[in-house]
């Protein structure tokens, strides 16, 4: 799992363009791999796990496309065309740049924690040690920062 976590997460991010959705799908991928490990033929582990991840991403994209309600019949036709279009991929570095900008817009007390955790990939314990804060405080700040970022990302997508 440790070997493929960056690869799986990167693939998910490339396909969905959403940090938190990619995180969820990457988690689901490993859980699904654990549950269906008996089905694995033992040939190419990397391809098998990445196949699970890409299939889950495509399922997510299909379901999220279904959730968008077209306003007019023309838009409905456009949406139908979009669904039949080939998969569009994001550039992870660009996505992370936008995500980093989102982190920098957070209130002061959450900003540094969010950057350290989401961008630099530090755990709550490491951040707590470095900043001299209580672990619970850091965990709470990460949780709230996540909520704020999810909200702001959704607003940006809807806009």
């Amino acid at each position: 799992m440790q070997t493929y976590q960056n690869l799986v997460f990167s693939i998910c991010l490339k396909m969905t363009g959403d940090y938190f959705v990619s995180e969820d799908i990457a988690q689901e991928t490993f859980i699904s791999a654990y549950k269906h490990f008996e089905d694995f033929d033992g040939n190419n582990e990397k391809a098998w796990i990445c196949r699970i991840a890409t299939n889950k991403c495509i399922d997510y994209l299909k379901s999220s496309a279904r959730r968008i309600i077209p306003e007019t019949e023309d838009k409905f036709m456009e949406q139908g065309d979009l669904r039949s279009e080939p998969l569009s991929l994001y550039l992870n570095k660009e996505v992370m740049e936008v995500f980093g900008e989102g982190c920098n817009t957070l209130p002061e007390q959450y900003r540094k924690v969010a950057v350290e955790h989401f961008i630099k990939g530090k755990t709550a314990k490491v951040i707590a040690d470095e900043m001299g804060l209580n672990l619970k405080t850091v965990q709470t700040r990460i949780y709230r920062a996540r909520q704020m970022l999810q909200k702001s990302m959704k607003t940006e997508v809807n806009a």
């Binding site: 440790q2 960056n6 690869l7 990167s10 693939i11 990457a26 490993f30 990397k46 990445c50 955790h117």
Partner: peptide, 23 residues
């Protein structure tokens, strides 16, 4: 396979630190 290759060579991003822990 093309997707895996392109991600591995050009677009690899570090996974969230608590991904494994959560799983």
């Amino acid at each position: 396979m093309n997707l895996i290759e392109s991600v591995e060579h050009e677009d690899m991003i570090q996974a969230p630190p608590d991904l494994i822990g959560n799983v």
